[in-house]
């Protein structure tokens, strides 16, 4: 096995999808776009919410758990609770990576960051025109668009609610303790 093959194997082993910058990037961009945070007057409040939101946008099963729980008022089973708990942990641990991706996107002028008035985190909005044409509308991201639409339908204030409120809605009411301050 040559050195190149060894490097490839190592990189493959070290690959963590959830923390991958492009994974974070496309989910984040689609979310902002679908939540219509596309101008300074409609910012997405508190970027930290995006770090937790990404898993739900990427995985329709997680969205379905929230949807079922909210629709029937029945707390999720232990397996689903476990899934939610893992999603919460991933959201929390993804936070620095998310910030890096946001910064990279800002440096390319794709979104703007602004210290919010009401929240501890930054507010941000998307510059759709800075994105390559057809990127956000590509059918490849159909699932993600559908998921964020579903979440928005459930919580129309998702764009502007506080991080605590969203965490309570996503995890707390479903039996997963959200300890994030």
């Amino acid at each position: 096995m040559n050195t190149h093959e060894l490097v490839n194997i190592r990189k493959r082993i070290m690959f963590v999808k959830a923390d991958d910058v492009y994974f974070i990037a496309y989910n984040l961009l689609i979310s902002l776009y679908e939540l219509k945070a596309t101008s300074t007057s409609r910012p997405f409040r508190d970027y930290r919410k995006l770090s937790f939101l990404i898993d739900f946008v990427a995985d329709p099963r997680l969205t379905a758990i929230l949807q079922d729980s909210k629709r029937f008022g029945i707390p999720p089973n232990s397996e689903d609770r476990h899934e939610l708990s893992v999603a919460y942990s991933r959201g929390a641990s993804r936070m620095p990576h998310s910030m890096r991706v946001i910064c990279a996107l800002e440096s390319r002028g794709i979104l703007s960051i602004e210290r919010g008035n009401q929240s501890e985190g930054f507010d941000l909005w998307l510059h759709v025109e800075k994105l390559p044409g057809g990127f956000l509308a590509d059918e490849l991201y159909e699932v993600e668009r559908s998921n964020i639409s579903t979440l928005r339908a459930m919580w129309p204030q998702l764009r502007i609610v506080r991080l605590d409120t969203m965490l309570q809605n996503f995890f707390g009411v479903n039996g997963v303790e959200a300890w994030h301050a």
Binding site: Y22, Y26, L131
Partner: peptide, 9 residues
């Protein structure tokens, strides 16, 4: 999707 995003962005 990540490859697509990489290629595009």
């Amino acid at each position: 999707k990540m490859i697509f995003a990489h290629d595009k962005l």
